[in-house]
Amino acid sequence: MIPAKLLLPVIAGLVFAAPAQAAPASIAGNWKADDGKSVIQFYKCGNAMCGKIAKFLVPEPSGGARDTKNPKASLRSRKLLGLRIFWNLAADGSRYKGKGYSPEDGRYFNAQVWRSGNRLNIKGCVVVFCKTATFTRA
């Protein structure tokens, strides 16, 4: 028989143990942006996830869409098709957290990405101002 003074700490440890965090649902694949203009492909890159502009759903200008709003003048002539706009998205609880870039306004932001069924939610924050978008499977 196990003495009560040895059994009590074991029981307390089991009762008060922190629950294990489940990994967030996979975000890999192609997702249509909520504005209907593009498809973003999320893929594994190193130990994290990244996202790039995989396809435009609206006609591009002659010569291709360019990163004209980028705050760095030297990057304003680069093509948007294939441009990585999410990086270092690492699992953190039920979400992926990392960095993002919006070529529409040339802003870099802190990103959170998570699945909700067949929808992909993306929250971008610059300082204290945040915006959430919902993507659908492409």
Rank of each mutant, 00 (worst) to 15 (best):
V10H: 00
C45K: 15
L7H: 11
K55A: 13
K5M: 02
K37I: 01
V127M: 14
A33I: 10
A25Q: 13
M49C: 13
R137D: 05
N70P: 02
K5F: 06
K72A: 02
L83F: 05
V128Y: 11
A17I: 14
F42Y: 09
Q21L: 11
A48F: 09
V127L: 15
G63P: 02
S94I: 10
E104K: 14
K55G: 06
K32T: 15
I11G: 05
G82E: 12
I53D: 04
F56R: 01
G124N: 14
A17D: 07
Y96K: 06
A111W: 01
A28Y: 02
A133H: 15
K97T: 14
K99N: 15
A17E: 04
F42R: 04
G100M: 03
G64Q: 00
R119I: 04
R95W: 03
D92T: 14
V126P: 13
K5G: 00
G117T: 05
F56I: 06
A20W: 08
P9D: 00
K131Q: 12
V126H: 08
Y101T: 06
R78A: 06
F56W: 08
K32D: 04
G36Q: 10
E60P: 04
G98V: 10
F135Q: 01
R115Y: 00
A28N: 15
T134E: 09
S94R: 15
V127E: 09
A28G: 01
G93P: 05
L75C: 02
G93Q: 06
S94Y: 14
S62M: 04
I85H: 08
F56K: 04
K52D: 05
P3K: 07
N118E: 12
D35R: 04
A20F: 12
W31M: 06
Y43V: 03
S116N: 11
P9N: 02
G36V: 08
V113C: 01
I2R: 13
F109R: 07
A23P: 01
G46Y: 13
A91D: 09
A18T: 14
R137W: 14
G51W: 08
W114N: 04
S94L: 12
G63Q: 00
E104L: 13
R76E: 03
Y108D: 10
T134P: 07
A91V: 10
V39D: 06
P103Y: 13
D34S: 15
D92R: 13
S116L: 09
G98E: 11
P59G: 00
G29P: 10
N30G: 12
V39W: 03
K52T: 05
I85K: 12
L75Q: 09
L81V: 05
K79S: 08
V10G: 02
F42V: 07
K32V: 05
A33V: 11
T134V: 15
L89D: 03
A91W: 12
P3C: 01
L83T: 00
